[in-house]
């Protein structure tokens, strides 16, 4: 899967969760900036897992401890790209 497609699809998922247009989501924004709370994040991760058929390591009790970096849209896109390479490659 081309990385550009992954990026587009992840942004679509986050935009849908944030009730924004994909064009209004930028790579530097954080989940806070997008107004996505912890429950919204859990829903987004579910949507990402379904979209790419991957397992995302994430425990809401210790978000910092998991390998899945959620600090920005860019970090999430890169993390998903890595997971797709690892799990679907």
């Amino acid at each position: 899967m081309a990385d550009e497609t992954i990026k587009t699809r992840v942004i679509d998922i986050l935009a849908r969760q944030a009730v924004l247009e994909p064009d209004d989501v930028t790579m530097d924004q954080s989940l806070d900036d997008l107004g996505i709370d912890s429950l919204g994040l859990v829903e987004s991760i579910f949507a990402i897992e379904e979209a790419f058929d991957i397992q995302v390591p994430y425990n809401a009790n210790e978000p910092e401890a998991s390998d899945f970096d959620i600090s920005s849209v860019r970090a999430i896109v890169e993390a998903v790209e890595q997971l797709v390479r690892d799990q679907k490659g």
Partner: peptide, 18 residues
């Protein structure tokens, strides 16, 4: 819900996992 622990229930302890 992503709130379940895979190892143990450690209430109030630092390093708890759910």
């Amino acid at each position: 819900l992503r709130v379940m622990s895979k190892d143990a229930c450690r209430p109030f302890s630092l390093g708890r996992t759910g």
